[in-house]
Design a protein around this nucleic acid. Structure first.
Length: 213
DNA sequence: ACCCAGGGTCATA
DNA sequence: TATGACCATGGG
């Protein structure tokens, strides 16, 4: 696990995630990124910013259909408008970061999973990037890269895979922060286009012959 | 014209 | 538990 981390770090450099100007923007981005390209999320967040909506109270005060139009570029905008308000409702009701920062990671994770529209991956991304908790974010990229690297089977269920990674290392939140970011960065560069795939720095250690995405 | 992107919910078996 | 339908924009 540490060797993969170092290999990715050498290949791609420090990522310094999450790409956001504030912790609240991380919450927003975590919902908007669901099954969507980041370029679309950027447009939606720019719309929110110019509308003064990077604030839980402001998001909650808006009719859901209006919010949907503002975040339209992010896709599935009606779904995400509802989810965004659900997350803001929880965040606001619980007292914001000042209160939530005092919660245990386990308590925080359970509460996040109870919010409509927040699943495991979104919850864990929020835990790492908005709350700096040491949690491994499992996503499709991690599964693919682990599988190819021969580290862990790609078809493990979410909680098993997450526990496997978290138990395999003894590290802080910054390590998990960088790890997930590096896996995403690596996938974006090497796991799409076939020509680049062959230049992948992991190709020598990849299991199997094809090294196909 | 198709495929997919840093998913999740809901209905169904 | 395990699939499938559904949401919907923008870039390749």
């Amino acid at each position: 696990m540490h060797r993969l981390w170092s290999t990715l770090r050498d290949a791609h450099g420090a990522q310094n995630w999450w790409p956001a100007d504030s912790r609240f923007e991380v919450l927003t981005g975590a919902v908007l990124i669901q099954n969507t390209a980041w370029t679309n999320v950027e447009k939606a967040i720019a719309n929110l910013r110019s509308a003064g909506l990077l604030d839980a109270g402001a998001v909650l005060a808006l009719p859901q259909s209006d919010l949907g139009q503002i975040i339209r570029p992010a896709g599935t905008f009606n779904v995400k408008a509802k989810r965004l308000q659900a997350l803001c409702g929880w965040f606001h009701a619980e007292g914001g970061f000042e209160v939530l920062d005092t919660w245990s990671t386990a308590h925080l994770r359970t509460a996040l999973l109870d919010v409509h529209g927040v699943g495991r991956e979104t919850a864990d991304a929020i835990l790492v990037y908005a709350f700096q908790r040491p949690v491994f974010v499992v996503d499709a990229y991690a599964r693919r890269i682990f599988g190819r690297f021969g580290l862990l089977p790609a078809d493990l269920d979410y909680e098993t895979l997450r526990a496997s990674v978290e138990n395999a290392v003894s590290v802080d939140a910054d390590w998990f922060n960088e790890f997930h970011a590096l896996l995403v960065a690596h996938a974006k560069v090497y796991c799409r286009a076939r020509p680049r795939c062959m230049q992948c720095p992991l190709s020598r250690t990849c299991a199997g012959s094809g090294h196909v995405p």
